[in-house]
């Protein structure tokens, strides 16, 4: 996903001179293609995330569309108030980009585990969450954001994620993207990099009659259209590599709160809090946190 991000950013910046990239002294072997080609639109803010986000907001207020790139919690929790007050409140076109979504940096420790970021970022009323499921969705989300400049959070994995799509999908906020159609009775709805996990689960007997959907663009402003999409299925299971509290499943429940019959059709697969403070590979920690097809050690069953 990192490669798709930088390739797409370079391509978009070649067509749009407003696009700038700011990094928090991170991105070695990722960001160089942009920095080399567009030095006047590249800034390494150093290890100072509060200032970085404020500077990005200031630049955005003067015509730039700024992508602010860093790892996991550094561009979110470390500068949460700058995102809230400077970027989101002023409705400035800054995209906060966090690489290492979920437990992608599983062995690096709790500091690098982005498992509470949805909960934080979806608190901003007019901030769009972009959680692409594969490299193609990364490109689609970025094109959407450049075509619709606004405060946004782009949550990407790291490297090596498989391509689930074969071409650029059409994405729209709040709209589920059909990935696999198998009857239209039940749906597995993923967000972020759990798309690949969902694809694996389809091979399990328990999911034999499930369709696979992905929701890459969502947020507080896009709840209203969830009920109609849930209503088309007898059951919808959401999947996220994020803690249950404040995450994607919680967002969906909030969206369905006024329609109890739809609420009953929804189940959530999220990470159990036990993953906090534990290290391991991404796949092992996802299993440990309950993200496996049979739901063992999981929650929300």
């Amino acid at each position: 996903m990192r490669r798709a991000f930088i390739e797409e950013l370079v391509a978009l910046a070649a067509e749009n001179e407003r696009i700038a990239l700011m990094v928090g002294d991170l991105g070695y072997s990722v960001i160089e293609p942009f920095a080399d080609r567009f030095p006047d639109r590249f800034v390494n803010a150093g290890v100072a995330e509060q200032n970085m986000m404020g500077v990005a907001a200031g630049m955005a207020s003067e015509g730039y569309q700024v992508f602010v790139y860093s790892i996991a919690n550094f561009p979110t929790f470390r500068c949460a108030e700058q995102i809230r007050n400077d970027v989101a409140y002023h409705q400035l076109p800054v995209t906060v980009v966090a690489v290492g979504a979920g437990l992608a940096y599983g062995n690096l420790g709790y500091s690098h585990h982005a498992v509470q970021d949805y909960g934080l970022m979806r608190l901003m009323p007019d901030l769009l969450l972009a959680a692409p499921g594969d490299p193609w969705q990364v490109r689609a989300c970025m094109r959407y954001l450049v075509a619709h400049p606004q405060p946004a959070y782009l949550r990407i994995g790291k490297a090596g994620e498989p391509c689930v799509h074969r071409e650029l999908p059409q994405v729209a906020p709040g709209r589920w993207l059909q990935v696999v159609a198998r009857g239209g009775k039940r749906a597995l709805l993923t967000t972020g990099a759990t798309l690949a996990l969902g694809q694996q689960w389809l091979a399990e007997p328990a999911f034999a009659d499930y369709d696979l959907y992905s929701l890459p663009l969502w947020g507080m402003a896009h709840k209203a259209c969830q009920a109609e999409q849930v209503a088309a299925f007898a059951q919808v299971i959401t999947v996220e590599d994020h803690l249950a509290d404040g995450g994607f499943a919680s967002w969906m429940r909030e969206a369905l709160a006024e329609q109890p019959e739809l609420l009953l059709r929804h189940r959530g697969r999220s990470l159990h809090g036990r993953v906090c403070g534990v290290v391991g590979s991404q796949s092992r920690l996802n299993e440990y946190g309950g993200l496996q097809a049979d739901g063992r050690e999981g929650i929300g069953e």
Binding site: A57, G58, G63, Y64
Partner: peptide
């Protein structure tokens, strides 16, 4: 910033200077 002539809303301290720096950098680069 909803008031004519006001560039930026503040209230939590430590926000104005980074924002101003971003504007100054934008001016330099443009």
């Amino acid at each position: 910033h909803k008031v004519p002539g006001v560039e930026f809303s503040t209230g939590s301290l430590g926000h104005g200077l980074p924002f101003a720096v971003g504007k100054a950098l934008a001016a330099k680069r443009q």
